[in-house]
């Protein structure tokens, strides 16, 4: 039986571990944080069906209740070295390539180290970290979850502005790609805000709204028709503080072709997804680091869970921005590939 390590106990890693365990393969799951699923437990509701994030997380965590799954939290993998680089072939008793995960040897490694949110401070003109009224979408999610959406003075806001594409599709921050889930997240958060604060005005500034998933377009329509969320096509060029702790934004309405100024209690920056530090570093160590620090797969169509390195598989948002649904599916696919291509129960053949 081959030894399998899964790096990252996010949705992809957990789903892969669950599928492998169901096929009687013992796995070790490494997680640098104290708890698994950190990127879900900080959410309130999940699009498109407004499912309670905590319930989804609990259901996922339940999949780990299997004696052949070893979960090691607070364990950051700093070193992931393929045998053909370090040349410790002699230590390898089974005759197949091995991977050194920290100080242990594994036959198969699944990289599921995920993403990290874009650091909004890198777009200083939007005032994050400078003006108290500017928040990231993650902080907004927290306020929604706690049912306490307040402005910088602790009062109920009269106006909330969402800005799309912060750190995605942005040449200046060096990220040309689309983070894929911010569009629908803003629509979701706008609806949540309206549900909690029906008298609050909500504006969403966008470049274009990419409502690609099932139910997304309907959510977008509902937001406009039922909740009266205003969508303005245009980007915000700069934000400034006002004496009463609110945020003044300068933007352009590109449909009207006019510059505009607007004062808002809250400015919510829809931050994009970047390769996490772990993804960046481990992918570089294994020489599968692709564009923007994401892990490169063997083939985007046919071998999207395999890498060029033998015995190294990749799943989830460490490859590219992915939604929760996509990540779970991808973890499942990776488990399938490990079971078949990884020839888990047979001896290794070239």
């Amino acid at each position: 039986m081959k030894k399998i390590a899964i790096l990252g106990a996010g949705p992809a890693g957990i789903e892969a571990a669950a599928v492998l365990a169901a096929n009687n393969c013992p796995v070790t799951l490494f997680e640098k944080e104290a708890q698994p699923l950190c990127n879900i437990t900080d959410k309130a509701f999940l699009f498109p069906n407004f499912a309670d994030a905590a319930e989804v997380a609990a259901a996922m965590r339940a999949k780990l209740d299997n004696p052949i799954i070893t979960l090691r939290c607070n364990t950051e993998v700093a070193q992931l070295t393929p045998s053909y680089i370090t040349g410790f072939q002699a230590e390898n008793l089974t005759g197949t390539p091995v991977w050194k995960v920290n100080d242990e040897l594994y036959d198969i490694v699944l990289l599921a180290t995920g993403y990290t949110p874009f650091d909004a401070r890198r777009k200083e003109e939007l005032g994050y970290g400078i003006y108290p009224g500017v928040h990231t979408s993650l902080e907004m999610e927290k306020m929604i979850r706690e049912g306490k959406i307040v402005n910088s003075l602790g009062e109920s806001p009269k106006r909330i502005v969402f800005l799309q594409c912060v750190g995605s599709r942005d040449e200046k921050s060096g990220n040309h790609y689309c983070s894929k889930l911010c569009c629908v997240t803003a629509v979701k958060q706008a609806i949540e805000a309206k549900k909690q604060l029906p008298n609050c005005e909500v504006f969403v500034y966008y470049m274009d709204l990419r409502m690609w998933g099932q139910g997304f377009e309907e959510m977008y329509r509902t937001a406009q028709q039922e909740y009266g969320v205003n969508f303005i096509r245009g980007r915000i060029s700069e934000a400034g503080g006002t004496f009463d702790g609110r945020v003044q934004i300068k933007a352009e309405d590109t449909l009207l072709g006019r510059p505009l100024k607007m004062t808002s209690d809250l400015l919510v920056l829809m931050v994009g997804m970047e390769a996490s530090k772990g993804t960046r570093e481990l992918a570089t160590q294994c020489r599968i680091c692709g564009e923007y620090g994401f892990a490169q797969t063997k083939d985007p169509h046919l071998h999207d869970c395999q890498s060029e390195a033998h015995g190294l598989f990749v799943a989830g948002a460490c490859k590219r921005p992915m939604t929760l649904t996509d990540s779970i599916n991808d973890g499942r696919s990776a488990a399938y590939e490990i079971l078949t291509v990884g020839s888990i129960n047979s001896t290794y053949e070239q």
Binding site: E124, E125, G127, G129, I130, Y131, S237, E238, A239, G240, G241
Partner: peptide, 9 residues
């Protein structure tokens, strides 16, 4: 400096 509001602040 308007694009780097940290400086005027």
């Amino acid at each position: 400096s308007h694009l780097t509001p940290g400086i005027p602040e």
